[in-house]
Design a protein around this nucleic acid. Structure first.
Lengths: 192, 192, 192, 192
DNA sequence: AATGAATGAGAATTCATTCAT
DNA sequence: GATGAATGAATTCTCATTCAT
């Protein structure tokens, strides 16, 4: 009788465990280091993932799907746009380390794909689309430009941690909320 | 007398030529590839740069110093804050490929340093400070939060190119200009 | 189950096989040459030894431990000090090539460590202490100065092979035996 | 008019200056390091010495010729064999660092030659012969074996510095003097 | 005479992947 | 299913020597 193992389940477990390793070392962690970190042999790693690339890709997908869920449950409690934005940015600040790592992993992956001459991964495109849709939905912003504005600001703030001092993300959220309010009010007046 | 070569000048030349290589392959270009790309031997490369790290660092410095000058000459012609922001974002859009590459190079370097356990490079800190000061100066924005807001948005938009479709940076500039105007007007009213 | 290999055993085997290579070329044999000489790949070599330095160090330890055993079994048969010294020097002469190589390996290693700014290796210190203790024990000499005298002479004779003509080590042993005898007799008389 | 330079003289000067560099790093100092240390260019170095090997060889010759002179002037003042030996060993101890370096340089060179498959250098043989003759002359020892005995002991004591603690060379000299005296007296008695 | 830029072969070491067990 | 030994090409960096100036 073979060991009873839920292949799919075990794969996910390995994936989650490997996040920190990738976050810490980027795409350049060696398969040996990952194997060691997971407490399995390299052989086993290759048994579950056909290649390092595949492992990395699956990891990215996992991460973002999980995030969308987290943000959803956190933001939905707020009612006005301002409140939602502030709530979102607070969450962002709370886990800024994590989001930073995650973004770096994403960038690492994109760059790596790019360098291999590979097309921008379909899998990534889907993840990205989901994130975008979720944002629109959660913040209740339909305007594409506005959405891009907010998400760019978020990306920029996350990236900002790279430069020495960590910026106050929550304060930036409040600033954004005020600006948006002022902007939308003015637009409203103009239309009338 | 030795072969006549302006060491400093030639070094800069090599630096500029190597940008595309780093942009394309990231920090993982090999010294051999760089040497080949520059049409010199690896030995020569090491004659001018003590290590790959040093070469990379010097490259980053060069790039940003050059950029600050470019932005300076472009923006100073505009008068109002709105015009300046729009001018800046137009320049950003015009060379978005270049800025994207540049940011990726910066990120690559930071991550690499980080993984080596090295402190965030002093040289980089200086460059960063210069960029920040230049921004404050050119846009005439003194408020630290507002400055961070703008620069984060810019970073986010640049990074945004990573996701498939290139966003319209210029349009985002206009949006920012409007939002800022609305925000500042409202703040003004509030104070009175 | 993995390939069945006794890691420890195989490591020792590789070690012994590599002696001639180090003896012949000194610390400057390349890892490639060693790998080739051992009939394994460089990768495998690094699988067993984390670095060239480590390989070298382990080799030195192996060598001297082996030697102490050899000398022990050879000398213990003799009874008087004179006989023991002569027996020891005969063994020395018999394998003078080997001992020369070995000393060169030791010197090479020490110098190499020194140049790297490393402390005189603890491992080496231990080996050295063992050798010294073994000598004192085998020859039955307790006086530290006398022991140093004999061991220095031995070192000098071994080194002497470097200069063209190989000296007659056995004859020097006899000379030492005579001198020691004369010296000890005289000391004895003086004390009375 | 060319610079007036005594080629031979300048060569010697360079040679002496380069000793410390070789002593510190062994044969593996790079020609660049030497050039830098001497305050000349690599080109100039090659102008005076056809190769690294030649430079090294000439250095060894210089060193030993100088030493012979030093020992000569120091020892000649003593009259009896015992006194001469003690004087010699005192000098040895006084400059033990220097003699250690010097021996290491010699060994390095010999090994290097050996590995290149080159014959034991004629130049070295001559130096060696000179040293030997000088020793015989200074100590007034004609017996070849006895001479070898003393010189081996010296070599061994010098090498001994490699092992951690520096031995008391002077004390060993006294011991040697006593042993020699006892031995020679006994021989004398035997002959009568 | 003197310079130092240029070379390129070769060094130690790493790493994704395979495969016999 | 699981293991980890084995691979070898590729990486960064070094260095004696040459040669145009």
């Amino acid at each position: 009788m073979p060991k009873i193992v839920d292949h799919v389940q075990y794969r996910k477990e390995l994936l989650h465990k490997s996040f920190d390793l990738f976050a810490e070392k980027g795409y350049s962690v060696t398969m040996r280091q990952i194997a060691q970190g997971l407490g399995v042999s390299t052989g086993t790693l290759y048994h579950y993932f056909p290649s390092k690339e595949s492992l990395f890709e699956q990891l990215v997908v996992e991460l973002y799907e999980q995030d969308i869920l987290q943000f959803g449950s956190e933001i939905k409690q707020a009612n006005t746009l301002s409140e939602r934005i502030e709530a979102g940015f607070q969450l962002l600040e709370k886990h800024q380390d994590y989001f930073f790592k995650q973004m770096m992993v994403w960038i690492d992956f994109s760059q790596h794909q790019d360098r291999e001459g590979k097309e921008y991964s379909d899998v990534l495109k889907q993840v990205e689309e989901k994130v975008y849709t979720a944002m629109a939905d959660l913040l209740g912003i339909a305007d594409r430009d506005l959405l891009l504005f907010v998400s760019s600001l978020v990306d920029g703030l996350i990236i900002g941690q790279m430069y020495g001092e960590a910026p106050s993300i929550a304060r930036q959220g409040k600033l954004l909320a005020k600006m948006l309010t002022a902007y939308l009010e003015k637009e409203q007046r103009t239309l009338n």
